[in-house]
Design a protein around this nucleic acid. Structure first.
Lengths: 200, 200
DNA sequence: GCCTCTATGTTTTCGCCGTCAACTTAAAGG
DNA sequence: CCTTTAAGTTGACGGCGAAAACATAGAGGC
């Protein structure tokens, strides 16, 4: 409801939380890792070093929210890419895979954060769980499986291929891989198309 | 050459470095992450908190050496599994893939550490680079490609599939996945066999 | 056999971090 | 208008990574 013009800062200080998540995403993009300190984040957001604790229990929770935003973005990207390919399941799967890898390459650190390990000893962050679940649902829907909660074999194979390719690429683990965007995109397309064409 | 009985501690204090790497691997296995402090590591090794700096420039270098040991272990495991399947390329690839995933499941944190991002701004650790390269060479040799330094398409597809499956499994990202070892093993075998049978 | 040299380990110190507790401020609502 | 309370600040604590200054004990030259 706040207008863009006029007094930009809302009442107290502004809606931190949103600002903190945005700033965290910025730093994540700049430094390509999430080893930045909470104090640095607060500094860049223009608040005191303890202010974030009014919105997040600790650093893990803040990062989990950032990851959740990432999963929503991934889901949107996949849904947008899927539009218009409802008729042809093979093409749909290929396009979805290319989108998945492109998403990872576009922001490697965010992708790594999203797929960081789910630790058993820490309490789960609900927003992250639901966002991740919905993203995977978009992926599962493209597979041959029915509407159940399980992932069918073919879909899982495709997902694994695409996820592994994305991971290996962003971690620069493939020896002869091209370093430019165009070459990488061609490589991804080649591998995905070849695998999709041959139904497992 | 040191006997197990008698004076166990060698001259000065022992061969730290080896001890530190071993202890780090232990903690890594116990806590399933590498957020442990260098001071905690020194404590468990029975030395002062600054002693590690006589053997490693910083914490990253120590972790890189741990990762290098992991790559050597992965290479050994794959070579052992490959023995006896020289004649049949399809079976060889499948067995190699199963070994790869089993290695990841056996020690998830070590696997994650090994495949952590290669940062451009940090100086590379030679031992890690060579160990990783040799492990990938063992994998590439199983593919249809020749002896060049590049990875052929089919091999890369297989590697991606297996790497992605391993990653998704250890990060508990697959919704309906079995939690027990036997079930997981069966799932892995099913996916790999199906994909290998259908040449891309 | 002694004596220096140097690798290895210790102590001390520094600045910074995550987190918490106590205090302050200002928007909201009866 | 005045109280309540969410949101932000200040200050403190223990612990960390890293570096500097210091200590010690094998090893090798003489």
């Amino acid at each position: 409801m706040s207008s863009e013009t006029g007094r930009t800062r809302p009442y107290h200080h502004g809606d931190l939380r949103r600002a903190l998540i945005d700033t965290a995403l910025q730093i994540l993009q700049e430094e390509q890792n999430w080893e930045f300190t909470l104090r640095e984040l607060a500094r860049r957001a223009g608040v005191s070093h303890a202010a974030p604790y009014k919105h997040f229990a600790d650093k893990r929770e803040l990062l989990a929210e950032v990851a959740a935003v990432g999963f929503r973005a991934l889901r949107q990207a996949m849904e947008a890419a899927a539009a218009g390919h409802e008729g042809e399941p093979e093409e749909l799967l290929a396009v979805l895979g290319e989108t998945y890898v492109a998403f990872a390459l576009e922001s490697p650190a965010r992708f790594r954060l999203m797929f960081g390990p789910v630790r058993d000893d820490e309490p789960p962050v609900p927003a992250l769980q639901s966002a991740a679940g919905e993203a995977f649902e978009a992926l599962r829907a493209a597979g041959a499986g029915s509407g159940g909660g399980e992932v069918d074999t073919r879909t899982l194979a495709a997902w694994s291929l695409v996820h592994g390719l994305a991971t290996l690429l962003i971690d620069r683990r493939i020896p002869g891989a091209p370093s430019d965007t165009a070459g990488t995109r061609a490589l991804v397309a080649r591998i995905i198309r070849a695998s999709v064409r041959a139904p497992a």
